[in-house]
Amino acid sequence: MQEIRDTIKEVIYAVMPITLVVVLLQFTIIWLPLEMFLQFLVGVVFVTVGLILFLLGVHIGLLPVGEMIGSSLPKTGKLWIILFFGFLLGFVVTIAEPDVRVLALQIDLVSDGIISRTILVYSVALGVGIFVMLAMLRIVFNFPITYLLMGGYGVVFLLASFTPPSFIPISFDAGGVTTGPMTVPFILALGVGVASVIRGKSSSSDSFGLVALASIGPIIAVLILGVIYG
């Protein structure tokens, strides 16, 4: 019960500031139509309830399961299993990420369907999956994360020189939306589980940096789309 109360307070404290700002603007500057303002208030209620349920689900289900899967994979003693399931889990959790779908919908509308939602979602998911796999490889062999970051962004800047300018901001937005509420908890828990088995609990900090690496994959994927469509 304490966890439920803490989650409710956390969500209320998070949602309340933006609600108060909009209410203040409503009665001072913007004066939205009454129907639209009431829709906003109903949306605030839905968002609050949804975030409470989502965060409870993360704490009850996603985090424990992600860490358990991560701690079970190294026990197989097979590198390819760790890499394959790292890729697969990064891929499927990105498909479920709501932020990615919102971005894909907006790009689909702006591009008049030239870049479809399906292509963008699966391209971003593929990029995340590949870089989560590389992050697993980094945890196993314990080489510095700076090598992957420098190499990844080197590829990004190289591709950016061959990509139409309109794709560059989209690609970096795609990297940002992968740091959403679905992807981050699961990937971090997965990395903690893998690192805790391979080098013990004292080395669980090796799991951090997975989100930074995972955000590079979608950037590269969308830039490649730009090269193809351009």
Results as ranks from 00 to 15, higher is better:
V197T: 04
P181S: 15
Q106M: 09
I224P: 09
Y13V: 07
L223G: 12
I8V: 14
I95N: 09
Y229K: 12
L51R: 15
V21E: 04
P181C: 05
L158C: 13
I12C: 12
V211F: 00
I107K: 08
V197P: 00
D112H: 01
I115C: 12
T183Y: 00
P165K: 06
L55R: 15
K201L: 00
P98G: 13
T183W: 00
G209M: 02
P98C: 11
V124I: 15
Q2C: 04
G226S: 15
I139D: 07
V92K: 10
F208A: 09
F40A: 11
Q39S: 13
G90W: 01
L159S: 01
F208T: 12
E3C: 02
Y147P: 02
E35A: 12
G77D: 01
E67G: 01
V192T: 03
P181T: 09
T146N: 14
K201Y: 01
G90F: 00
L190F: 06
V11N: 05
Q106F: 09
T163I: 04
I69K: 06
I30A: 10
I219W: 12
F87S: 05
I187M: 06
M136S: 13
R199P: 05
S203N: 13
T146C: 03
T179S: 06
I220L: 15
L120G: 15
I170G: 02
D206G: 05
G86V: 03
V124L: 14
F54H: 08
S171G: 05
F37S: 03
G226V: 08
V128C: 07
I60F: 08
G70Y: 01
A212L: 07
G151V: 07
F157G: 15
T7C: 07
G152V: 06
L83Y: 14
R138C: 03
Q106S: 12
D206Y: 04
G77L: 01
G180L: 00
L83S: 08
V93W: 02
Y153S: 14
M16A: 14
L158S: 13
S205D: 06
F87H: 10
I119L: 12
W80H: 14
I8D: 04
Y153P: 07
D99L: 04
T118L: 03
V11E: 02
I12F: 10
I18Y: 09
P17K: 13
I170E: 01
A135V: 07
Q106R: 14
M1I: 00
I139L: 11
L134W: 09
I198K: 03
P144C: 12
D206V: 07
